[in-house]
Design a protein around this nucleic acid. Structure first.
Length: 277
DNA sequence: AAGAAGTCCTGGGCGC
DNA sequence: TGCGCCCAGGACTTCT
């Protein structure tokens, strides 16, 4: 499930390979993968456009085209982008193909069809329903313990739910939420408004360091996430609690427990992350 | 207004 | 072996 580090890894691959290419034709195999417009409108919007640069906001990829248009892409659970020669065999989960010049394709694949893309005029990108509400980037200066503590004031719900809320901070998903809470020694079910400033300081630091480590290892590969070149990331080898139910905590050897918080599978060490502190 | 629950969706894993 | 059920979760909508 692509989170900030996985999306950032894809962004870097895209910037390296597709910048400068011109989109010559578009084939939509799954119309619902095109959001907020018909396939025909989408094709017309991107035809003949040159890819200028590739950005990211939270878990969204922003492919900036000439002509004041950007492709807003969300991979959701199983979405992937692939940059391949146009004569490569078509993967069965291919949803949208952008034919590029010089004999290459940019292909959007998505097994579970939750992901999608749309073409948006640059001047209204900031009004985009998904993008406009996003909180600060966790790797930016705006993501501070004071900011998080202030957001938490009226939130008696579990702190993990707050980390997953994209309106508060953009890009944290289930894996890095669990890993960050473990690193900070904070139980995922702690009431958000019960954390001290010292705890928020520790948690913000943990979020930043786990996201940075994820980027350094080119993301986490679980199930079928792959990077642009089809290579998996390697951060899954370094996970301390996520998907390690029953295995010993790397710090104290207590078996990792799994529960359900904020509608998500949640992994933690009951010894290192006490509920009362 | 926060937060829980329902929705979408398919392949892998499990129990019988 | 094979069938069928359940689980995985990001973001959106609906309900409380």
């Amino acid at each position: 499930m692509p989170e900030l580090p996985e999306v950032e890894t894809v962004r870097r691959g895209l910037a390296q390979f597709v910048a400068g290419h011109t989109i010559t034709d578009t084939v939509v195999y799954l119309p619902k993968a095109v959001r907020s417009m018909t396939s025909e409108e989408f094709k017309r919007s991107v035809a003949g456009q040159t890819i200028r640069s590739v950005g990211r906001r939270g878990k969204y990829l922003l492919i900036h085209l000439s002509g004041g248009i950007s492709l807003v892409v969300h991979l959701r659970m199983t979405g992937r982008l692939e940059y391949v020669p146009s004569d490569s065999p078509l993967h069965p989960h291919t949803r949208i193909v952008l034919h590029l010049d010089r004999g290459y394709d940019l292909r959007f694949m998505d097994m579970r069809t939750f992901g999608g893309m749309e073409a948006v005029a640059d001047k209204v990108v900031s009004d985009h329903t998904g993008l406009s509400r996003l909180g600060p980037e966790p790797l930016s200066r705006d993501f501070t313990p004071e900011y998080m503590m202030n957001c938490a004031r009226k939130r008696p719900g579990p702190v993990k739910g707050m980390l997953l809320n994209q309106d508060i901070a953009a890009g944290i998903g289930n894996i890095y939420a669990d890993e960050s809470l473990f690193q900070a020694g904070i139980h995922p079910c702690r009431a958000a408004n019960s954390l001290s400033l010292a705890e928020w300081t520790s948690l913000c630091q943990a979020v930043r360091s786990s996201l940075k480590a994820g980027i350094r290892h080119r993301g986490t590969t679980v199930q079928n996430h792959q990077n642009l070149d089809g290579r998996p990331g390697s951060y899954q080898q370094r996970l301390k609690v996520y998907d390690r139910t029953g295995k010993p905590c790397p710090r104290c050897r207590t078996p990792i427990q799994k529960t359900r918080t904020a509608g998500r599978g949640t992994h933690f060490c009951p010894h290192c992350q006490p509920l009362s502190s």
